[in-house]
Computed example of a mutant assay.
Amino acid sequence: MKYTNAKKILPEKLIIEIQQYVQGETIYIPKQEKEYNSWGSLSGGRQWLEHRNAAIRHAFKNNSSIEQLAKEYFLSIETIKKIVYSHNGD
């Protein structure tokens, strides 16, 4: 996390207002929500998981058992159930 002296970037009037609440401490100012990227959107992780889950649903619809899928994908039976019974892939 990068720290910047408030005097270098904020108007004095705003600094005086902030000092009404906190002085001499480090505070974190988060990004606006619209600036956040959703998990995995930059790395491709989300897309990979969506592709994997679609393949699991497809295999389940084509008569692969939950136990077979758990072994094949190295996932727990409960995780496979969540994937195949969710409505995300419909």
Rank of each mutant, 00 (worst) to 15 (best):
M1P: 13
M1D: 07
Y3Q: 11
T4N: 09
T4V: 15
N5R: 14
N5D: 12
A6K: 11
A6V: 11
K8W: 06
I9L: 07
P11G: 09
L14Y: 08
L14H: 10
I16G: 09
E17T: 10
E17C: 07
I18W: 05
I18D: 04
Q19I: 06
Q23E: 11
G24T: 12
E25F: 11
E25V: 11
E25L: 13
E25A: 14
I27P: 02
Y28A: 08
Y28T: 08
P30N: 03
P30C: 01
K31F: 10
K31A: 07
E33T: 12
K34N: 11
K34S: 12
E35A: 08
Y36G: 03
Y36S: 03
W39M: 12
W39R: 15
S41Y: 10
S41V: 11
S43E: 03
S43G: 04
G44N: 02
G44M: 01
G44E: 00
L49P: 07
L49R: 15
E50M: 15
H51V: 13
H51T: 15
R52S: 04
R52H: 07
N53C: 02
N53F: 01
I56N: 00
H58C: 06
F60C: 00
F60W: 02
F60R: 00
K61Y: 10
N62K: 03
N62S: 03
I66A: 01
I66Y: 01
A70K: 02
A70W: 02
K71D: 08
K71T: 09
Y73W: 09
F74Y: 14
F74A: 14
E78M: 09
I80L: 02
I80T: 00
I80S: 00
K81M: 04
K82A: 08
I83P: 00
V84I: 04
V84S: 00
Y85K: 02
S86V: 00
H87M: 09
N88L: 15
